[in-house]
Nucleic acid binder design. Structure first.
Length: 589
RNA sequence: GCACCCGUAGUGAAAUGGAUAUCACAACAGUCUUCGGAACUGUCGUUGGGGGUUCGAAUCCCUCCGGGUGCACCA
């Protein structure tokens, strides 16, 4: 429709002797100003120094002559400073409902057809807790993956995990100190225990303060020793603990991915990319990298004043994170030579050095330059007035004083929903499933409703809302619409998008439904799920308002089949939209 | 110090350079409605300060103030 209107305007301009003008056709913010709007008169006025309102009237006069060929357009008006507003006809809206009901692929587009894209996200580390940050990255990554898929891309999901390094040594030190947990514990409980052991080790590793002086902790020596053993695998006892702990944390992560609705195609481990990265660095010393104080470094600022120097191989000969990142990128492209795009999603604290790594890699492989893209998201921040302790250190505390991890937030939220559904007449399995779906929805929506770049305020009391601007509100609207459909079925009222029955009322929901594909395209182009989240909340509100003010199922009402068709269309769009956010749409909740 | 990101009602957010800056939460006032009250209908209230560009700025430029993150052997 947008294209049609654009062509119509171009035709009118031609008649007026105006050509090659850059103007936009868009939805006005407020439906009062029509369904589409253009700034063409204002742009022309600027170029030809004319009064925009007069020019707008002139253009509209010409447009009206051609309007007969466009039955979808009911009215054209001049408004405001010189906007030309288009109001679509009931015929158009009835047609759009029919389109949604008949076309399975209504929301799909082909902009990324046959493009191979790998999306890397989540990236938790074995032996460490699953943080809230991992929850954020997962929600954003999964949603972006699904949005790209709906644009036709061939998407694979990747997860990169630090299976070696100091953090593992810290956890193993803690495990040796406290002993292995009771074997009867659940996987999640064992994983939590390992996380606690990590915290213990990490706490003891730092220097000890004696007055003004700092002294190296004796534990540091022990942990460094364990770290070496992990690398060279010479200690059978440590190997055994390592293998056990690795398996437990990885299994616990898998349980979380199942609840979150993510299925990874590839798992990369630091240990397997370190060597690839190291080879690249060593092969390019003198060309890209330099030796300095015994280390191998990359001087980013020599290539771009906004970059800085980073160490790639330490003076003790160990590859750093940067080098592993280099190896990871190389591995991805090697196993997937036809890949068009490699997306990596992380928190924005990694933005600066990822830029350095990307620069170094593009100097070695020029062909990768345009195929790598790093998307960063904000951090969890404490909302003003909220009560939580220890946030500054990156560890949020709940009221009970326990550390709030991503895993515990998820668990607590699901428990909260379970409380709400405990009196439903469902079996236990169904209650559990619905609780998980609604709990995940609450968390994911609160992350995805805002643009990816910014921080997300966290308030333990209010973060997980079930009302208003929330995931469960969307699910509730969907479930409610399904109940309406069920009732219609019971009364034998079949959906019919054609029946107008002399009724030319157009509901607000209809004015929003046909816009869904545009929203999806924009989200895909900008890698921004929040456009979909915002759209769905507006759509749900419009539907609930329709529901509240109209009797949909009514045998006496001749327009009832149309209203049922509209309800169907709403459920189709809502279900697809929720899917794109990585949220399930239960029929009942 | 340098670099990057950010500053919008009491709170949390939205707004491809466009119209009277939108939405939710909170607060306040209603609806107790048939199809699910996890709802609906209202009221209240906002672009950090100062310049500039533009017909038009929350958006672009400059500057000041305030916050976050990153800057050599951690990841």
């Amino acid at each position: 429709m947008q294209e049609k209107i654009k062509k119509l305007i171009e035709g009118a301009l031609k008649n007026l002797g105006i050509e090659e003008i850059d103007f936009v056709v868009e939805h006005p913010e407020d439906l009062i100003n029509g369904d589409y709007s253009t700034n063409v008169a204002m742009v022309c006025a600027k170029n030809f120094k004319q009064n925009p309102k007069e020019l707008a009237e002139k253009i509209v006069g010409t447009l009206r002559q051609a309007q007969g060929e466009f039955p979808e357009i009911q009215e054209i008006q001049v408004a405001g400073a010189g906007f030309i507003n288009f109001f679509l006809s009931p015929k158009f809206f009835h047609g759009s409902i029919e389109e949604i009901l008949n076309n399975e692929d209504f929301a799909r587009n082909r902009t990324l057809q046959n493009k191979k894209i790998m999306v890397e996200y989540t990236d938790p580390n074995p032996f460490k807790p699953f943080h809230i940050g991992h929850l954020m990255t997962n929600a954003i990554g999964e949603s972006i993956a699904r949005i790209l898929e709906s644009s036709g891309a061939d998407v694979s999901r990747a997860n990169y995990q630090g299976d070696i390094g100091l953090h593992v040594a810290k956890a193993i030190w803690g495990l040796q100190k406290r002993g292995l947990p009771n074997p009867d514990l659940s996987t999640a409980e064992k994983a939590n225990y390992i996380g606690e052991c990590y915290s213990l080790g990490a706490g003891e590793y730092g220097p000890i303060r004696l007055g003004d002086e700092e002294k190296e902790s004796p534990v540091k020596v022990e942990i460094d020793e364990i770290n070496k053993k992990i690398y060279d695998r010479t200690d059978a006892k440590i190997n055994k603990i390592y293998e056990w702990g690795f398996k437990v944390t990885m299994e616990a992560f898998e349980d979380l991915y199942r609840i979150l609705g993510t299925k990874f195609d590839f798992y990369f481990l630091e240990s397997e990319v370190a060597q690839i990265g190291e080879n690249i660095v060593r092969d390019n010393v003198g060309k890209v990298f330099k030796e300095s104080d015994g280390a191998i470094i990359f001087k980013g600022e020599e290539h771009d004043p906004k970059l800085h120097t980073r160490v790639f191989i330490t003076s003790t000969g160990l590859p750093t994170y940067e080098t592993k990142e280099l190896g990871l990128a190389e591995k991805k492209f090697r196993m997937n030579p036809n890949m068009n795009l490699s997306l990596v999603i992380t928190a924005n604290e990694q933005a600066d050095y990822m830029r350095v790594v990307a620069k170094a890699l593009s100097l070695i492989h020029l062909e990768y330059t345009d195929k790598m893209r790093h998307i960063t998201h904000g951090m969890m921040r404490l909302a003003r007035g909220a009560t939580a302790e220890g946030l500054a250190s990156g560890k949020m505390s709940s009221r009970k004083g326990n550390v709030v991890t991503g895993e515990s937030l998820l668990r607590d939220t699901i428990a909260l929903v379970s409380e709400k559904v405990k009196d439903r007449e469902w079996d236990e399995e169904k209650k559990k499933k619905i609780s998980e779906q609604v709990g995940v929805s609450a968390i994911k929506y609160s992350i995805l409703k805002q643009s990816t770049g910014g921080d997300i305020a966290f308030d333990f009391e209010k973060s997980i809302s079930f009302e208003g601007d929330s995931g469960p509100y969307l699910q509730y609207s969907y479930a409610r619409a399904n109940s309406v459909i069920e009732k219609a079925r019971g009364e034998n009222i079949l959906p019919d998008p054609h029946l107008q029955a002399g009724n030319n009322v157009v509901f607000e929901v209809e004015k929003l439904l046909y816009r869904f594909p545009e929203i999806v395209s924009r989200s895909a182009a900008e890698y921004e799920p929040h456009y979909i989240a915002n759209y769905l909340i507006e759509l749900a509100r419009a539907f609930n308002s329709f529901y509240g003010n109209t009797v949909i199922v009514d045998k006496e009402d001749k327009t009832s089949p149309y209203k049922v068709a509209l309800t169907f269309a709403f459920t189709f769009v809502m279900k697809k939209g929720l899917h794109l956010l990585g949220i399930e749409a239960p029929e009942k909740m």
